[in-house]
C-alpha cells in the first residue's frame, strides 16, 4: 500500500525552461502566442523574456521517490492545481522535486478507490519556490488488484 510513502520526497533535478520546448508545448495546446515564442515580443514584455504556459511544468523531470512505483496503466487523473509566484521565464533553470502529500482510500461505486496526492516543487537557484503543482491520482481497485499492492 502507498501509505508508507507519505512524506517521502525525491532528489532535486535541474531543469531548463528550453525555448524549443516552450514553442512546441504552446503549439501542442493550440496556444502559440507571441508572449511564449516571439523573442522580440518577449524582450519587450514586462517580463523581459518569453514566458511559459502555466501547465508547462508537465515537461520537467522531478527525480525518483525511492521504491515508489505507480501503475503504468489505469490511473485516473482526478485533480490538478498549479500555484505560481511568477510566470516561468524561457531560459531559466529550476530545481524540481516531488513529495508524497497523502494517500487514503475511499469506498466508491467501483470498489475501493485509492487517492494518491503528489506535490511537485520548482525552485530557483537561490532556493525560492517559483511554482508548485499538486496532483491527485485515483487508483481503482481493479488496477490495484492487478498490481497486487
Amino acid at each position: 500500500m502507498y501509505k508508507r510513502f507519505i512524506g517521502k520526497q525525491s532528489n532535486k533535478v535541474k531543469n531548463t525552461v528550453e525555448r524549443g520546448m516552450v514553442k512546441r508545448f504552446s503549439e501542442a495546446i493550440c496556444d502559440p502566442h507571441p508572449i511564449f515564442i516571439d523573442e522580440e515580443i518577449g524582450k519587450n514584455s514586462k517580463y523581459g523574456q518569453n514566458i511559459a504556459p502555466p501547465t508547462f511544468p508537465r515537461v520537467f523531470e522531478y527525480g525518483e521517490i525511492e521504491d515508489l512505483e505507480l501503475p503504468q496503466k489505469g490511473l485516473i487523473h482526478g485533480e490538478e492545481t498549479y500555484h505560481y509566484e511568477r510566470p516561468l521565464l524561457v531560459g531559466e533553470e529550476l530545481y524540481c522535486y516531488s513529495k508524497v502529500k497523502n494517500y487514503f482510500e475511499k469506498q466508491g461505486k467501483n470498489g475501493l478507490m485509492g487517492f494518491f496526492l503528489l506535490k511537485r516543487y520548482g525552485k530557483d537557484s537561490e532556493g525560492n519556490i517559483i511554482f508548485t503543482e499538486e496532483q491527485t491520482v485515483i487508483i481503482t481497485e481493479a488496477v490495484r488488484k492487478a498490481m497486487s499492492v
Binding site: 496556444d31 508572449i35 514586462k46 517580463y47 502555466p54 482526478g78 485533480e79 500555484h83 505560481y84 511568477r86
Partner: peptide, 15 residues
C-alpha cells in the same frame, strides 16, 4: 494568455 501584460495566473485549479 492575452492578458499577461496586466498580470499572471497565480493559481490554476482543475477537477
Amino acid at each position: 494568455t492575452p492578458y499577461y501584460e496586466e498580470g499572471f495566473i497565480r493559481d490554476y485549479q482543475i477537477r
